[in-house]
Design a protein around this nucleic acid. Structure first.
Length: 273
DNA sequence: ACTATGCCCTGGGTGC
DNA sequence: TGCACCCAGGGCATAG
């Protein structure tokens, strides 16, 4: 599942291949049509051809390519998507949904087993991501901001962390990891956390994201970075998908429950309500 | 304004 | 071996 560290790793890998390049051809393959949100697949192919790529940014889990006509090509990988740079002569990945050829002969391949990924072509990037809060690694995502957001929600704190209005880029892996780092039970109502615990949670979010980013992202399910490689972060995960194993911190057995429809992993020994 | 639920999608795993 | 079923979950629509 690509979350902030995985999307940022992809962005860093792709940026040197893309900047200054002009798109020569775009092919959205049969079966991949649903990725096109703002245009029909054929229109989207036509509109992208001939555009020069001027920047590659990211906000939350969205990749944002700035085009020479001022518009933005916004890509979301959702559950199983990857965007990988390849030579044109390289073979297709099993779940390749689209092909983008550049003027130097390089290609971008959009792979997506479960077809949840999206492409928007918009005047302003925010048109593709309404209601998105501050990026979790930006200055705007501060402890006071988190305190204010959690204070007006009664849902479980882990569910609140998944709300992209609260912290753009945090997904299921890092929400669980942040609660563990902060020693907070993920079921605790968000508005019952005091300032000290919110401060710990804020630090936990940053630590979980930053440490994963240093290792180039996490390799669960179908994630591939911009070079087509799996990430390494799995070895550093404290609780995610470790149910039945013992806690790094206290030795208790890690549990898995369902919270807000999501699999949730935590240590019942050292994460407190 | 907030909360809960269902939908989209497909491969892998489980149980019979 | 085959088949039915459930699970994974990000973001959005909808209803309450």
């Amino acid at each position: 599942m690509p979350e902030l560290p995985e999307v940022e790793t992809t962005r860093r890998h792709l940026e040197p291949h893309l900047i200054g390049r002009t798109i020569r051809e775009v092919r959205i393959h049969p079966g991949g049509e649903r990725l096109a949100i703002t245009h029909s697949p054929r229109e989207l192919e036509r509109e992208l051809v001939g555009r020069r790529l001027e920047s590659l940014g990211r906000r939350g889990k969205y990749l944002i390519a700035g085009l020479d006509d001022g518009r933005c090509w916004v890509v979301h990988l959702r559950m199983s998507g990857s965007l990988v740079w390849r030579k044109a002569s390289d073979g297709a990945h099993a779940y390749e949904r689209a092909w983008v050829e550049l003027d130097d002969g390089g290609t971008l391949r959009f792979n997506d087993l479960r077809k949840f990924g999206t492409w928007h072509l918009v005047e302003d990037a925010v048109d593709a991501m309404p209601n998105l809060g501050p990026d979790a690694l930006s200055e705007e995502f501060s402890a006071p901001w988190l305190r204010a957001q959690l204070g007006r929600r009664s849902i479980a704190v882990k569910s609140a962390l998944l709300d992209q209005k609260v912290a753009a880029g945090v997904g299921n892996i890092y929400a669980d990891e942040a609660c563990f780092i902060a020693s907070i039970d993920p079921r605790t109502p968000a508005n019952r956390l005091g300032p000290r615990r919110v401060g710990r949670l804020h630090a936990g979010v940053l630590e979980a994201l930053t440490r994963s980013l240093e290792d180039g992202g996490t390799s669960f399910s179908n994630y591939l970075d911009g070079n087509g490689d799996e990430g390494l972060h799995r070895i550093h995960v404290h609780v995610f998908r470790r149910e039945g194993e013992s806690c790094d911190r206290c030795g208790s057995t890690i549990r898995k429950i369902r919270l807000g429809g999501r699999g949730t992993h935590f240590c019942p020994g050292c994460q407190r309500r």
